[in-house]
Design a protein around this nucleic acid. Sequence first.
DNA 1: TGGAAGGTGTTTTCTAAATAACAGACTTAA
DNA 2: TTAAGTCTGTTATTTAGAAAACACCTTCCA
Lengths: 232, 232
Amino acid sequence: MFIEKHTNDASLNLGFEWNFEQLEKEFPSIRLTNLNDRSFLYHQGDKCSSLFLIKGGIVKLSHLTAQGNELTFALLSKGDIVGCLDIVNADHVMEENAQALGKVDFYRIECNDFKQLITLRSDLSWSVLTSIYARKQQIERKLIATHTQPVKQRVIKMLFELAQLFGTRCLHGYALEIFLTQQELADLVGASRSVVSTIMNNFRDQGVLNYTREQICINDPALISIELSSES
Amino acid sequence: MFIEKHTNDASLNLGFEWNFEQLEKEFPSIRLTNLNDRSFLYHQGDKCSSLFLIKGGIVKLSHLTAQGNELTFALLSKGDIVGCLDIVNADHVMEENAQALGKVDFYRIECNDFKQLITLRSDLSWSVLTSIYARKQQIERKLIATHTQPVKQRVIKMLFELAQLFGTRCLHGYALEIFLTQQELADLVGASRSVVSTIMNNFRDQGVLNYTREQICINDPALISIELSSES
DNA sequence: TGGAAGGTGTTTTCTAAATAACAGACTTAA
DNA sequence: TTAAGTCTGTTATTTAGAAAACACCTTCCA
């Protein structure tokens, strides 16, 4: 209930569930594949003409800058689409990395075929459209956040988002079912590792969260009170 | 030719042109409307269930932050879509302003009707999808830019983009056919007005551009040489 | 069993750019 | 024709956070 307050993203996508079984029947050419933790669906710089529909697991979408910093756009999950939507240019160069966090199942579809699929199944086209649109909105919010909020608040926000996506109830609140190094958390909020580290330690000292190198555990009521106080 | 080098956005959208005449015939319920300079299609905070298809002119999409700063996401033009894509929630609150820069012609369509349209005309659905996707990519690039490039370079980049969108050849290079105050330019690159002002003056001193309060005029070969030197 | 490699915690230094503040220029409309 | 409002140019001050640099602690292997 507390968490719901922060459920502002991807809301358009709610209510739609891909029917994977039906999809497999209707389009047997579409092959199900899977990858292990930290494997890449594709790398930045790769030429790629495929599109990937996530069936299960988490995919990190990130960009490596010339200066060697990584910037994470989004963590995608079931029903999301990544890859190439360009049917015009045959060797389209990817601008970002798509990496599995944990095990990931996905369908790989040639972009052309996907266009066919969309055209045939106009019911799908609308949900794909709204899903992409929701992601556009989410990145716009991220852009706003980096321009208006200090790192500390962005970290809080991100923790809520993560709790929502991967949280399971534990004694204190939510435990994140995902491995994230501090570096990855920093990439996710667009900040340097060292400041994120000290911020996390402050939070720990204040008792709003606890973590080991394997897991983060959030005491959400306490975190909310922090958020509210730092908003003013 | 020089300019083409910087044509990295909306490339997916190229090659598709809306056939507005046909659209009007097929869907007579869709009404053509127009607005004058600086009028709003909708305001941030408005409840809105319509979607707007731009027939001509330029629409600025921007967000006003709590601190009172404006941040511009994009300048949209012919064929672009703005507004609400949420058919689930009847009173969807807009997160941004959509404002006409100069005269704008557009079609206003109820979101539900648009869904129908997309479903009926599956050829359209693909181009709408790629157009939205291209915008997502563009904002991702913007996010990267704010994290990696100093204001000066972002200004250069923006000038090129503007030249591409609104430039007409003049004796020195490109003249922008658009009124933009320094504040608006600053909003576009996500920086404060004062630094943009001094940067623009530096450029003027170096002879790479000239401007009055009405118009900006870019000497593109000179600007490119600046860009290259500041990249290193 | 020891050392390499990867992750963490902390501090110190440094800088880009926000903020603030003001003066001049131009535009408008009373 | 003055006053008010808007835009521009510039400078001085302040600050968030990047960068760099370490020491420490795990884990994982040869």
